[in-house]
Design a protein around this nucleic acid. Structure first.
Length: 660
RNA sequence: AGCGGCGUAGCUCAGUGGUAGAGCAGGAGAAUCAUAAUCUCUUGGCCGGGGGUUCAAGUCCCUCCGCCGCUACCA
């Protein structure tokens, strides 16, 4: 496909370009952000170790309505707000020893220019069109409403009259790429991973793809990147955000650099933003005439103590706290060892502690510790010299296993199977522990005639640890560096190490070892109620807490609560909405009027049973049209996804009474 | 509802038509270099239920039950 001038290819280094999503600055970083970024960091470090020139990109997404609103809520301009919020991310990446090559912010000039260039190009390629539609505008609120939103000619938000408005926007002909995209996915099995996600996207593409609205009228939303050819519009945030993957490596500004990195080798993303990446982004790239990324990997989500993580539950895990409590390396290790990448996992202190104690402290940390002690005691504190004649089968097996790791770990890493890669590494840790028992250096040390054998055994252990450190480095960079340093191998692991360094025997005898504190001091298993502790653990650190209260107040004031108009209602009629499973159409008497309400409770309640029941109605909820039926209010019921129980009253009450 | 996936040891999960496995937890022992860390042995299974194909089914097919994901209207 590509012309390959001999000179160039022979000089060309292997490259690797990996990205995380850019994170929306409206959110304080949590374990989910940390997970993606740590995984990306591990892959980046792994590739660097194997001689790849690596570009590892992360950043922040700073435009859009939510940021604008949050900023005005705090009485600052959006840029200032974003500047403040971005700090939490940058600091977290430092705490987690993230080795990103660049950090792109969508408010940076270099990015904005590229977004505009992209729009210009799309315009030139005739894949944009303007379409208008009718609606209503509330002047004082500066908000656009569709005719479905509007109640009696009034703004559903403030109740003031609205004016008719004809609004238009730019649309991207995404539908035109549906077939091509399907073909691409079919042809490239590794494009979307894991496979289950790939199937989902294929399923999504089975139905007709709509065009994508990629603009917002500036009059409604000013915090965005202006359209280059129409100053009345700003760019839809998702388009703005996705473009970061090409703006940072130099699209439209440095073609040579861009060519070097694009297409990206891996986009990592959470499963929640799979569609935007797999469909929107792919279609945009096709429209631009660019290659698609080689792999898009959608990873799973973490629950906490078996429950969904959410602000209202107050169980949001703060990665800063976890790193402080267990150590950055142990936290990184746990994230990637506990759960197959791609699947959902559960985070609990008990699980972290178990893995920490048994795998890090007992298996690895103790192996390291006992080896160094023996070298200090039986070899005068210097790396002993192995004697070829004293080498036994067991030693060769261990060396062979160490050699095999290059392949086995590599295979798993290339499949994003971090947990399997670690398991491979641990086969060597386990082997080494058995090796110690079987060769019992403390017995050899009892007779001087065994010195050659003793030296050989200890050398094999030291060399095994050196090689282990190389494989562990992507996961636990600080620990790995400590290991090699203490064992007398002074190579900085973060400089791309040489292929030879993976080979057995690179550790030079005669160098002094220096035993430090335990790598992973054992921890007490969590006591008491785990849940409580997790909530406590999730309490944001000082700086974060400030940000947190600023942006995401989890408590509301009395005044805010009073904005809710809750009223007693009596169900006067109920019927199933045709063609749905969950929806019931109710008529609810609230004293002054009878409200039509569509409720998603049909799986729990037969219509007849509801008639006459007293319910709680949110009376000032913005009306909506569901399945062509106007719903003017919402009735309260317990349950998350599935309705469990309808809220009603112990005593008889009059319809229309206020509930507070 | 449509499409897809899962159900295997107390827990988390591997398992390629040919003797059911690993880690953790549980039980017994050995050793003393080590962070009481390690090592050895070991208990534990109607492989969700039922039917079928096959010399042979955890594995392939059908069906039922239960759970999950995506999609569609969850106000």
């Amino acid at each position: 496909m590509k012309p390959s001038p001999k000179k160039k290819t022979s000089h060309k280094r292997k490259t690797f370009y990996i990205t995380t999503p850019i994170y929306y600055v409206n959110d304080v970083p949590h374990i989910g952000h940390a997970y993606t970024t740590v995984a990306a960091d591990v892959l980046a470090r792994y590739k660097r170790l194997r001689g790849y020139e690596t570009f590892f990109l992360t950043g922040t997404d700073e435009h859009g309505q939510k940021v604008q609103q949050a900023a005005s809520h705090h009485g600052v301009d959006p840029q200032m707000y974003a500047d403040r919020m971005v700090v939490a991310f940058k600091e977290l990446w430092e705490h987690l020893t993230i080795s990103n090559s660049d950090f792109v912010r969508t408010t940076e000039e270099r990015h904005k220019r590229v977004v505009q260039a992209v729009l210009q190009k799309l315009q030139e390629r005739n894949v944009l069109y303007q379409a208008s539609y009718e609606g209503w505008y509330c002047l004082p609120d500066e908000r656009f409403w569709t005719s479905e939103d509007v109640v009696d000619g009034k703004c559903p938000e403030c109740g003031r009259p609205v004016e008719p408005l004809s609004e238009s926007n730019y649309f991207f002909k995404m539908s035109a790429y549906q077939d091509r995209l399907k073909r691409h996915i079919r042809k490239h099995p590794k494009f979307i991973q894991p496979e289950s996600r790939r199937n989902e996207v294929m399923g999504f593409l089975e139905r007709p793809l709509k065009d994508l609205c990629i603009s917002r009228p500036r009059a409604r939303l000013s915090w965005g990147i202006p359209f280059p050819f129409d100053p009345d519009y700003v760019t839809y945030v998702w388009v703005d955000a996705l473009v970061n993957y090409i703006s940072a490596p130099g699209y439209g500004s440095d073609e040579r650099r861009f060519k070097k990195w694009w297409p990206a080798d891996v986009h990592l993303a959470g499963k929640d933003i799979l569609t935007t990446h797999a469909v929107y982004w792919s279609a945009l790239l096709m429209a631009l005439g660019l290659e698609l990324p080689k792999t898009l990997f959608a990873h799973g989500w973490w629950t906490v103590d078996g429950e969904k993580m959410s602000k209202s539950r107050g169980n949001v895990v703060d990665p800063n706290t976890m790193a402080a409590e267990y150590g950055t390396d142990a936290f990184r290790y746990f994230l990637l060892r506990e759960v197959p990448f791609g699947q959902d996992g559960d985070f609990s202190k008990a699980a972290v502690t178990t893995r920490y104690n048994s795998e890090l402290a007992n298996d690895l940390g103790n192996l390291f510790s006992r080896t160094l002690t023996m070298i200090e005691r039986y070899s005068g504190g210097v790396v002993p010299k192995p004697h070829p004649k004293a080498v036994k089968t067991d030693d060769r097996r261990m060396a062979a296993l160490a050699k095999e790791l290059y392949k086995t770990v590599g295979q798993e890493m290339d499949r994003f199977a971090f947990h399997r890669a670690l398991r491979e590494i641990w086969t060597l840790v386990d082997f080494a522990n058995r090796y110690v028992e079987q060769n019992a250096p403390w017995n050899l040390a009892k007779a001087p005639k065994n010195q050659a054998r003793l030296d050989t055994v200890l050398y094999h252990l030291a060399e095994t640890l050196r090689i282990l450190a190389i494989y562990l480095f992507p996961f636990m960079p600080t620990t790995a560096q400590r290991m090699v340093t203490e064992i007398g191998w002074t190579t900085p692991l973060d400089q791309a190490i040489k292929p030879m360094d993976y080979h057995w025997g690179k550790l030079k005898p005669g160098r002094p070892v220096q035993k430090g504190k335990p790598l992973f001091p054992r921890m007490e298993p969590p006591t008491g109620i785990t849940k409580q502790e997790t909530v406590e653990a999730a309490t944001p650190s000082k700086e974060i807490r400030m940000e947190s209260t600023q942006t995401e107040p989890s408590l509301i004031t009395m005044d805010e609560f009073r904005r809710l108009e809750l009223r007693v209602g009596r169900v006067v009629s109920a019927e199933k909405v045709a063609g749905t499973d969950k929806l019931l159409k109710l008529s609810v008497d609230i004293g002054t009027e009878i409200r039509p309400v569509v409720a998603g409770i049909a799986t729990r309640y037969a219509p007849d049973l509801l008639i006459g029941k007293m319910v709680i109605l949110v009376a000032n909820l913005k009306p909506a049209v569901i399945r062509g039926i106007e719903s003017r209010g919402m009735i309260l019921a317990a349950g998350d996804k599935e309705v469990e129980a309808l809220a009603t009253f112990l005593e008889p009450v009059k319809p229309g009474s206020r509930v507070k």
